[in-house]
Every structure is written in structure tokens, then in C-alpha cells.
Amino acid sequence: MITNRISKEQFQTTFFRITKDDLPLLQKKFWLFDWKKEIKTAERVVYKLTTRENPAVIQGLISCSDFGDHMFVNLVESASFNRGENRLYQGVAGNLFAIICQESFDKGYDGFIVFESKTKLVSHYRDLLGAQRLGNSVRMFVDTKAASQLIKNYL
């Protein structure tokens, strides 16, 4: 579920694997990352987050890889209108990470996901996701307990 920041109205979310039909919506001018390149990488899966009410509008994207005992998040990005202080919807990032936590559970990995954080976002991910830092690195992980909470909160 995501929440309109202004009206406080909540919207149920859905997620799907990105398809070739979505390519026109992934123009570089709308996204910080090159999602078309990400889709072409064989060992990566890209999911789009939409609302049930408006499935044609992508709220955010996430790319992951299956490492055999956990899921690794390669890239995650909210749509341009969902970034910064004036974002339209809250909860996009939480939903995106919850999707991968659910996939981790489905594969028998107990919800574990791993990702590399930008240094300035380490505390943000700790607060938002319950993620923990691996030593002093920017590599972070979400364990079973935190993954369960994300799924409960967002899916």
C-alpha cells in the first residue's frame, strides 16, 4: 500500500515483472538509472510497482538477482514524482523491498535480502527497512524478522 502525501488516501499496490511493452515508459529522462540495460542482463529480474487503480503508471522499479541462499537487490528507484520532499506517494521504497523479501521467502531463503547502500542512506534504510549493516561496509541485509515486518506493513 502507498499513501498520497497530500490527501493521505491509500492505494493498494501490485507488482509485475517488467516486460518489453514497458520499455517506452523507461526513458532515461524519467529515471536516474538505465533500466533498459538492467532488463537485458540475463541473471537479473526487474519488477515494477503500480497501484491497482492505475496499473499503467509505474511508481517504482527494483532489480534483483537470486544468489541461491538470498536475494540481492541490484537497483531500486522510485519514479521521479515519488522522490524528494515533494514526492506524491509515500511507501514506494518499502513496497519495493517487501516484494523482494516475499520472493526470498517463496524461494526458501527465509526473507533474507542483501544490497549495497549509498553511504548517506545507511541510516535511512536501517530506519525504513530494519536493515543491518555488514561491518563498516555499505553492504546491508534484511533478516527474517525485518522481512516479515516489511511484508506485513506493505504487502
Rank of each mutant, 00 (worst) to 15 (best):
F72C: 10
D127P: 11
N4S: 06
V73P: 01
D110P: 09
G135L: 02
T51P: 02
V142R: 13
I62M: 03
A56Y: 02
Y125S: 11
G91P: 04
E103K: 15
Y47E: 10
I100V: 13
T19A: 10
V46A: 08
I99C: 04
A42V: 02
Q12A: 13
S78L: 11
K29G: 03
H70L: 07
R44S: 11
V142P: 14
R139T: 12
A146E: 03
L88W: 13
G130F: 01
L150N: 04
K20P: 09
Y47L: 13
L128Y: 13
S117I: 08
E116T: 15
A56V: 10
R87S: 07
D106N: 15
L23Q: 10
T3C: 03
L121P: 02
D127F: 14
Y47H: 05
L155I: 07
K8S: 13
K29S: 14
T13V: 12
W31E: 10
K152N: 03
G108I: 02
Q10E: 15
D143G: 02
I100G: 01
N82L: 00
T51G: 02
A98Q: 01
R52L: 15
G84R: 08
I6Q: 15
I62A: 08
L26Y: 00
L25A: 09
L96V: 02
F16E: 11
T51K: 04
E103A: 08
K29M: 14
D69I: 12
L150C: 00
N136Y: 02
L150M: 10
G108R: 06
R139G: 04
G108S: 00
S7W: 10
M71N: 08
F72G: 11
V46I: 07
L150R: 09
S7K: 01
W31H: 05
V73D: 00
G111R: 09
P55F: 04
L128N: 11
L26M: 05
I99K: 01
A93D: 12
G135F: 12
S78Y: 10
K36V: 05
R44E: 04
G111D: 05
I62V: 01
G108E: 07
K118I: 11
A42P: 06
S65I: 00
G111K: 07
K29I: 11
V138P: 07
D127V: 14
A98N: 05
R133W: 13
I151C: 12
V57S: 10
L96S: 05
R87F: 06
T14W: 04
K28T: 01
C64T: 02
K40A: 09
N74G: 14
